[in-house]
Amino acid sequence: METKSIMIVGVGGQGTLLASRLLGNALLSKNYDVKVSEVHGMSQRGGSVVTYVKYGSKVASPIVALGEADLILSFEQLEAARWLPYLKKGGTIITNTQKMDPMPVVMGAAEYPHDILDAIRAKGVNLVAVDALSMAVQAGSAKAVNVALIGVMARNMDLEKQVWKDTIAATVPAKFLEMNEKAFELGYASQGE
């Protein structure tokens, strides 16, 4: 099978690393060759972060380059816009509608772009936009936003739902399992804008 490329992008601290581990473990249970490239260190401190997940019969490079991603899962609108050039022609982008001002915007040195979602759609890109933060809050904590988004992604991938649920149960701490399962279900049930 040809290698598939997924990017998980967001703001450092949003839980993108756990999301990429969940995805990696779910794919592994289907016996794919899997590579996951993570970001550690300074870039994690509230900066723009990206994790690459690749799978197929044999994966070589662990990173995804411009124009190569089959799917981008974005935790924040501006990050969806930032990483869009990595999307393959015909690829899909799933984004959380949450907006987080980067420091240059907070300071008034730059403006947060308006109508990012419309602009992406205008390019003919397959876009799924969801309010994952509300789902996470509904599930019990804003911290579950990553698992809510995994739920949305699960709907857009070819793995059985049970694989995802088993992987979540095996990956997240037991005391947060119920909340994360709820967040996953809310994400899975959503249709997107």
């Binding site: 050039p85 403006e111 602009a119």
Partner: peptide, 15 residues
């Protein structure tokens, strides 16, 4: 490979 980008200024997000 071809790429798609938006015609807007995207502010950086430094750590």
């Amino acid at each position: 490979y071809p790429t798609t980008s938006l015609d807007m200024a995207i502010p950086p997000r430094p750590p």
